[in-house]
Every structure is written in structure tokens, then in C-alpha cells.
Simulated scan of single mutants.
Amino acid sequence: MDKKPNSETTLIWVLLNIAHKTVTQRFETELRRAGLPPAAWYDVLWGLERNPQGMRQNQLERGSLFDQANLSRTLKRMVDDGLVTQCPAPEDRRGRILTITDAGRDLRLRMWEVYGGLMLSEIEDKVPAHARQGLIQGLQALVPGFKGLEP
């Protein structure tokens, strides 16, 4: 490779990774302190709640922050704990349709009390209002095809 990243690109890469690590660790610490499951569970519950008709695991994975192996293990625990149901897919019977249960909705709401507060303190309170739109645009450029937060 002849061309090397310039110092600005390198700084973006380093800061992006450090910010992710710092904020994620803080979220995990506070969820644990509140006696709640890890953020991966929130991600799954939120995805399923936004899609009340249910989703296949691969659909959930595409919108998730976690890889397939971790998602499979997480889903097994969540099904065992009564937070998520899985039923055979009507069109092929081999696939599974995942849906959130009432207990899963309740847990997501309890987790949101911590999660939402941390979004405020760790992101909204720290990123100046005038910089937010540029940050959003920059991150969207790194995630082509991101559809936003709609189901």
C-alpha cells in the first residue's frame, strides 16, 4: 500500500474506537450496578419491540450491534428467561420467528431508565449541540445503507 491515512483520518479512527470503548464500558458498568442484564439484551429487546410482527434471527442480527455467535447465545438465554419467544416460520418451518414477550417489554423499560440516562450524560451532555449534526453525518457515511431508527 503506497498511500497512507493522513493524521486527521488516523485521529478519527483512534477517537472513534476509544469513544466506543469508553461509552460501552460505562453503559455495561451502570447496567450491572443496577442489577440489569448487559446492553446486548437491550439491543435485542428494542429491535423486537420495534417489530411487533416478529423477526427472523438474521433480520435481528442485521440491525444489531452484536455478531451471530453472541446473538445466538443471547437469544437462547432470553428465550429460557421468558423474554423472547421463537416459533417456526410459517413459510418454511425451518426458520424461527422471534417476538418479544410482556416480560421482555417490562425488562426493556427498566433497562431504559439506565440506558436512556446514560445516553444523556455520556453523549448529549458531552457533545455540543453545534457538533451533533456533523457527527451524525460523519457516522452515517461510515455505515452505508443505515436506515435510521424506524422499524
Rank of each mutant, 00 (worst) to 15 (best):
M1L: 07
M1F: 08
M1Y: 13
M1K: 05
M1H: 10
D2E: 06
K3R: 13
K3F: 12
K3Y: 08
K4W: 10
K4A: 14
K4E: 04
P5M: 09
P5W: 07
N6T: 07
N6A: 03
S7V: 15
S7I: 14
E8W: 09
E8G: 11
E8H: 15
E8D: 11
T9Y: 10
L11Q: 09
L11G: 04
L11S: 12
I12N: 08
I12H: 12
W13A: 06
W13T: 13
W13G: 02
W13K: 13
W13V: 06
V14D: 03
V14A: 11
V14H: 04
L15H: 10
L15C: 14
L15S: 15
N17P: 04
N17D: 04
I18E: 13
I18M: 06
A19Q: 03
A19L: 15
A19W: 07
A19I: 14
H20C: 05
K21H: 15
K21T: 09
K21S: 12
V23I: 10
V23H: 06
T24R: 06
T24N: 09
T24Q: 05
T24L: 11
T24A: 09
Q25K: 15
Q25T: 12
Q25M: 11
Q25L: 11
Q25W: 13
R26P: 00
R26W: 04
R26V: 04
R26Q: 13
R26E: 10
F27Q: 01
F27K: 01
F27L: 11
E28R: 00
E28L: 00
E28S: 03
E28I: 00
E28W: 01
T29S: 14
T29F: 07
T29D: 10
E30I: 03
E30Y: 02
E30C: 06
E30M: 02
L31N: 00
L31D: 01
R32C: 05
R32M: 09
R33Q: 09
R33A: 11
R33S: 12
R33T: 10
R33L: 02
A34I: 01
A34Y: 05
G35S: 03
G35R: 00
G35M: 01
G35N: 06
L36F: 03
P37T: 01
P37G: 00
P38A: 04
P38S: 12
P38K: 05
A39S: 10
A39V: 15
A40T: 14
A40V: 10
A40H: 06
A40N: 14
A40S: 14
W41S: 10
W41F: 15
Y42D: 06
Y42Q: 08
Y42N: 11
D43S: 01
V44G: 02
V44I: 13
V44T: 10
V44F: 00
V44D: 00
L45N: 02
L45G: 05
W46I: 13
W46L: 14
W46F: 15
G47I: 07
L48N: 01
E49L: 07
E49R: 08
E49W: 07
E49D: 13
R50F: 05
N51R: 07
N51H: 08
P52E: 08
P52R: 05
